[in-house]
């Protein structure tokens, strides 16, 4: 009697984020040249590169804050279709408000510094249409707790908080609506090493618990190595190398990547 073994199920996963052939010029400065990127659901893509390499520009495009000169951007979501760069202002705003979260390097860009921390989180819920004060309060509290913000300071304005705390408020705001995509632009830059480690721990825990798809931009290879699954190395607006974290850090192929990795080591 022949026993048929269960064949392993192979499931093809479609990428959640597809960015194709994006070009962006600022006058005579070419910020992005034919940049393409894929991010799979639940994955963390790290983007590294020197200052001016175009990594933050790419992130702002993923947050639909800027429109490229050419190229396309799609998200594999049931209620979103087509090239997102072609959406009008209102559709972009609603998509970013509900499906994409972002943590900026400078908390002043992402937070209302004189409003309460819970209010900052509640703002995102309000844009999405939540109109119950009790629910707003509960959800803001829950998001802040998830980002390990001390709840006794729930209503303190971010301007009275430390840099690390402000980043946690930004993070709570970004995850409050359980976004499909979380974008992080140098989230730990300017924080001291111990606070950096705490923020990164929170990020890793959130990613593991909630399987959030993330794109993190940093010039700090240590940060990328800690949280990312795959890495994309950018230089002068181009992607020079991309691959798994171990592959890039242990066996860099491109001369610039080798220089980066060895400089770090």
């Amino acid at each position: 009697m022949t026993r048929v073994m269960d064949a392993p199920r192979i499931v093809t996963t479609k990428p959640l984020v597809v960015v194709r052939n994006v070009d962006k010029n600022y006058g005579s400065v070419q910020a992005l040249r034919q940049v393409s990127a894929l991010v799979y659901p639940g994955e963390v893509l790290g983007i590294v590169g020197e200052s001016g390499s175009g990594k933050s520009t790419l992130l702002r495009m993923m947050n639909l804050e800027e429109t490229p000169d050419s190229g396309s951007y799609t998200l594999d979501l049931s209620d979103v279709s087509g090239n997102l760069f072609e959406l009008d202002r209102f559709a972009r705003r609603m998509l970013c408000a509900t499906r994409i979260g972002i943590v900026y390097q400078n908390p002043h860009h992402g937070l209302l510094m004189r409003h309460s921390s819970s209010g900052n989180v509640a703002e995102r819920l309000l844009v999405a249409g939540e109109r119950s004060f009790a629910t707003l309060r509960a959800k803001a509290k829950s998001a802040l707790a998830a980002s390990e913000f001390p709840l006794e300071r729930l209503d303190a304005p971010p301007i009275e908080l430390s840099g690390g705390m402000q980043q946690r408020v930004q993070l709570a705001k970004a995850i409050a609506l359980e976004p499909a995509l979380l974008l992080l632009d140098e989230p730990t830059t300017g924080l001291d090493v111990s606070v950096q480690a705490l923020v990164l721990d929170t990020l890793k825990r959130l990613q593991q618990e909630r399987q959030i798809t993330m794109v993190i931009v940093s010039h700090d290879l240590g940060v990328i190595r800690t949280v990312a699954d795959r890495v994309m190395v950018m230089r002068r607006g181009e992607v020079v190398e991309a691959g798994l974290v171990d592959q890039i850090f242990q066996d860099p192929q491109h001369a610039y990547t080798q220089q980066l990795v060895h400089a770090k080591l």
Binding site: F90, R93, L112, H115, S116, A122, E123, L126, F133, L136
Partner: peptide, 22 residues
């Protein structure tokens, strides 16, 4: 004006939220 065009009144509600919190 853009906010009016988009009926983007979240910040108005946030103002009320802040008043209740404070």
């Amino acid at each position: 004006r853009q906010m009016h065009a988009d009926a983007d009144y979240g910040r108005m509600w946030l103002q009320l939220y802040e008043q209740i919190v404070r």
